[in-house]
Design a protein around this nucleic acid. Sequence first.
DNA 1: CTGAAAGCGCTTACAG
DNA 2: CTGAAAGCGCTTACAG
Lengths: 333, 333
Amino acid sequence: MKRVSIKDIARIAGVSVATVSYVLNKKEGNRISEATKEKILEVAETINYTPNKMAKSLKTSKSRLIGLILADISNDFYSTIARNIENEAMKLGYTLLIGSSDENPEKFKKLIELFSEQQVDGMIVAPVVHSETILEKLIKEEYPVVTIDRYLNNLDIPGIMINNREISEQICEFLVSKNFEEIIYIGYDTELPHLLDREKGFDKCMTSSGIPCEKILVGLENITLEVQNGIEKVIKTRSRKRALYFSSNKLAVAGLGYLIKHSINVPNDISVIAFDETEAYTLFQTEITYVKQPLEEMAAEAVKILDNQINNYIPSGKKVIFPAKLIEKKSVQ
Amino acid sequence: MKRVSIKDIARIAGVSVATVSYVLNKKEGNRISEATKEKILEVAETINYTPNKMAKSLKTSKSRLIGLILADISNDFYSTIARNIENEAMKLGYTLLIGSSDENPEKFKKLIELFSEQQVDGMIVAPVVHSETILEKLIKEEYPVVTIDRYLNNLDIPGIMINNREISEQICEFLVSKNFEEIIYIGYDTELPHLLDREKGFDKCMTSSGIPCEKILVGLENITLEVQNGIEKVIKTRSRKRALYFSSNKLAVAGLGYLIKHSINVPNDISVIAFDETEAYTLFQTEITYVKQPLEEMAAEAVKILDNQINNYIPSGKKVIFPAKLIEKKSVQ
DNA sequence: CTGAAAGCGCTTACAG
DNA sequence: CTGAAAGCGCTTACAG
C-alpha cells in the first residue's frame, strides 16, 4: 500500500511542493499560471493522489473529526441520534468517530482519551454517572464538548436536552385527567439527572393529585426481568383502573413484552404511556401513546453548537432545551 | 486549547525528546535509568500530557483507525453489527469511523474516500450496488478491506456472510413441509447478490415443490407502503392456507404492521417467517419464527480478518460463510 | 545510558 | 508567478 504524496506530484510535474499544495487547495488566487495548474491537476489524477489528512491536521491543528459517545449504539434511541448527528456532521465536512459507553464511567473515560489522542476537533457525548472529572478536565483544556440527551449537575458544558421534568408532569396530568385509580411509574434506579427529572415530574404531580401511585425502579442493565417482575407484583393486587408510565423506550419494550405474553389487553385491562419512539411500538396490538423527542432538530443543534465552539471556543454551560411532545394514540383510555 | 507535547516534557525534565519517546512507549529495554524514567513519567503526568496519535500515525503509517460503512446505522440490523464490530475493534485497540451509505453509490464512494484520506488502516463495508469500481481501486492499492453481510460478484475482497441461498431453501422446505397452499416471498427489487441469493433459494424450492407462489418485490426505500399494498393485493384472492416469507427485518416489520392494523391473526389467518432478529418482534402478538444470523461471530471474524490483512496484506477473495439458523417459534402453523 | 538528526506529508509565511 | 525552508509532534536508526 504505497502512498503517493504531494512530493511525487511535484517531482513529476517539475514544480515545488508548495506550488502543488496551493493548487490542490485552490489557494492560488491568480498566483499560479493556468499551465502549471493544469499540469499539476493532471498529474495528481493520473498517479491517483489521495491527500493525507493526518499530515494536514498535524500542520493545521484541525482534524475535521468529531467524536460521538453514546450509551449504546445498538439501542434504537441512540442509533437514531447517531444517524442524525452523522447527517449534520457530514454536511459540515466532519467525519464521525463513534463509541459506546455502556453506562460505564471507565469506558466513557477511555473513549474520551482515545478520541482526544486521535485529535478530534470536538465531541458530542451522552455523559454517564461519575464522568464529571474527565469532562471537567476536558473543559479546563478548552476542548469543545457538547452533551446530548443527558446533562450532569454542576458541569458547565453546553448541552442539548428536552424539558424532562415538564413533559413528565404533563404526562402525569394527562393521566390524572383520565381518572386512573393507580399510576405506576417504571423508571431507572439511577443518579442520571435527566432521568431523575422525569421522576421528579411524576412525583410532583402525583403528590398534588393525591392519586395512589407506585414506582418500579430498575437497574440500567438486565432490565427486562426486573421490569416484568415489577409489573407482575404491582398488578397482582385487586383490579383497578391502572396506567403504566414507562420512562424510556427500552423499559416500555420490556413492559409491553410482558403484557403481550400474559394477554393483558391495552388499554382495556391497563393503559400505557411511554417515553421515546421505537419501531417496536408499530407491532404492538395497540398504538402506543408516547413522548416524542425532536431528535433530528436536537442533533442538528448539537452539531451546530459544537461547530461554533470549534471555530471559536467560548466557555459556556448553556443548555438548549427542546420541548418534547406527547403523541396521543390509543393506549390510554 | 494549547496542546502539550513530548517536547515540553523533554524541556521540563531536562532530557531529549528521544528519551521521552522511549519511556512513554515503554521501549526502553534497560536503556534508560530508573531515575530519568520516573522523572519523565512524573512530568508527563503533572503537565497532563496527551499523546498526539496523528503525529505518531504520520511517522509510523499506522493509524489504528478502522472505517465502517453500513447502509444505515439507524437500522436495527446494522446498528447491531456496528456494536459488535465496535466491541471487537476496541479489543484490538482500533477506533471506529462510521458512515451510512443509504444504498447510494455516490455516498458510498464519498465515505471510502473520506476514510482513506483519514488514513484508516482498513475498512469493513457492506457494499452497495455499483460500488465495484471504487472497491477495485482500493484493492489495487492493496488497501485492507473486508465486506460484511453483502458481497459483490467478480470482486476479490475477503468477506463475511451467511449461506443466504441455502438457508432460504431451508426456509422454503420448512414451509413446504407445512402444506401451505400458497407461499408469498416479500423481498427487494435489487441487484444485491446476497438478496438475489435469498430469492434464488426461494425460486428453486418453489419450482421443485410445485406449490403456488407469489413474489412481492419492493424498492429499497419507502418499503412500508409498497409492502402493505403488495400484501393487500395478494391476500384479496380467495382464502387459502398461506405463508408470508419476509426476506429482511424491515420488510417483516412493515408487513407485520399491516397484519396488526387489519387484525389478521398470525398464524391462524396467515403464517409468517422472517429474516433477521429485531426487538420489534417481541411486541408482536405471536412469537415470530425467524432466521438468526450469528452477528457477533460474524463481526468478530470480520475484525479478525481485517486485522490480519492490516498486519500482513494478502490479496484474497475468500468468503467466510456462517450458517444462519432457523429459529422456530409460533408464527408458522 | 542518552541525544542529535532525519523524516513522515503536509501548509504557509517569506523572499524573489 | 514560483520555490526554499521551517515546522506541526512524533519515531527510530545511529552514534557515542
